[in-house]
């Protein structure tokens, strides 16, 4: 009797492991106990034993809060790697939703300790916050219907009849505008990308622009309805946002990322999230100098 019951529970456990439920399997990140110099952010966080990480809750592959109630994605995994290096386990991380608009404010107003939220490093943003990383180089790209042959790259929008959709306030939208013959009429902007996808589906627009990995994910899940052009017209380095001028913390983040790349946890994080089903393998870019 006793052995039988044990066997059953083992089978159940095995089944769970096979289906990979929960999406937390990537979190085989080591939690390391370390000591940090007094007065540093690392020391403060490690002593507190908890960290507030800002991420997106609606960005598939990067930060998406699903039925599990916890955000999942590449950004989330990067956050976990950094937390792990501080000796903070996953369940002690407080996830804070930080949509594009509020990211700088969230850091400045001390609502989060770091932000991993497809947060593109720009000089303009550097005036107000600091960035560790980059941990990924995304590119602004275009996605069209698989049957489309009119658009081969941003230059195709010299034809003023072609319309492109982007997120309101997105870098991709901002950077495609110079390519447009008639930006007022060719550019369509929505608050969320799913509306752009809807507009592309119904033929209201001819293309949509976003980060290439986001588009790769959308194209992959569309089962051949869409294709990504694959000629990024603007490279976007994703960084780890933090309070302006925290150079020691920035260097710690860069060191942590390097270690994660070396021990394979960085690549594993990519493959199980944003890189799932894609042929492209993310490689950790050279870190930018901390400032």
């Amino acid at each position: 009797m006793k052995t039988q019951r044990l066997t059953i529970s083992m089978i159940v456990l095995g089944a769970l492991a096979l289906t990979g439920c929960g999406g937390t399997t990537a979190a085989a990140n080591k939690v390391e106990k370390q000591t940090f110099a007094a007065g540093t952010t690392m020391e403060r966080l490690a002593t507190a034993g908890t960290i507030r990480i800002g991420t997106k809750f609606d960005q598939p592959g990067y930060g998406l809060k699903g039925l599990s109630g916890k955000p999942e994605g590449f950004d989330v995994e990067i956050g976990k790697i950094i937390a792990g290096k501080l000796g903070i386990p996953e369940d002690k991380i407080q996830w804070v939703e930080t949509p594009s608009k509020v990211r700088e404010e969230s850091i400045i107003q001390n609502k989060v300790d770091i932000i991993t939220a497809t947060y593109v490093i720009t000089d303009e943003r550097r005036k107000r916050v600091s960035f560790g990383g980059p941990y990924y180089l995304a590119g602004s790209d275009l996605m069209v219907k698989a049957s489309d042959s009119a658009i081969s790259g941003p230059e195709s929008f010299k034809d003023a009849k072609l319309k492109v959709c982007g997120g309101i306030g997105s870098i991709d939208g901002d950077k495609i505008k110079p390519y447009l013959a008639d930006p007022t009429n060719q550019m369509v902007e929505f608050d969320v990308l799913s509306k752009c996808e809807d507009a592309l589906r119904t033929g209201q627009v001819d293309a949509m622009t976003a980060g290439n990995s986001i588009l790769d994910g959308m194209a992959a899940s569309s089962k051949g309805t869409y294709k990504v052009i694959g000629k990024p017209f603007f490279v976007q380095p994703y960084g780890v946002g933090m309070a302006k001028g925290d150079i020691k913390f920035c260097e710690f983040v860069n060191k942590s990322l390097k270690e994660a790349a070396a021990d394979g946890s960085y690549e594993r994080a990519w493959k199980e999230t944003a890189g799932k089903g894609l042929e492209t393998v993310a490689k950790l870019p050279e870190p930018a100098p901390c400032s």
Binding site: K101, T122, I168, G169, S170, D174, P183, M187, E189, K195
Partner: peptide, 17 residues
């Protein structure tokens, strides 16, 4: 989908830039 109106300028300047 219209965008580029006065309010969308705020989005472009804060979020994108």
């Amino acid at each position: 989908g219209v965008g580029q109106d006065l309010f969308a300028v705020a989005d472009t300047l804060t979020a994108a830039r």
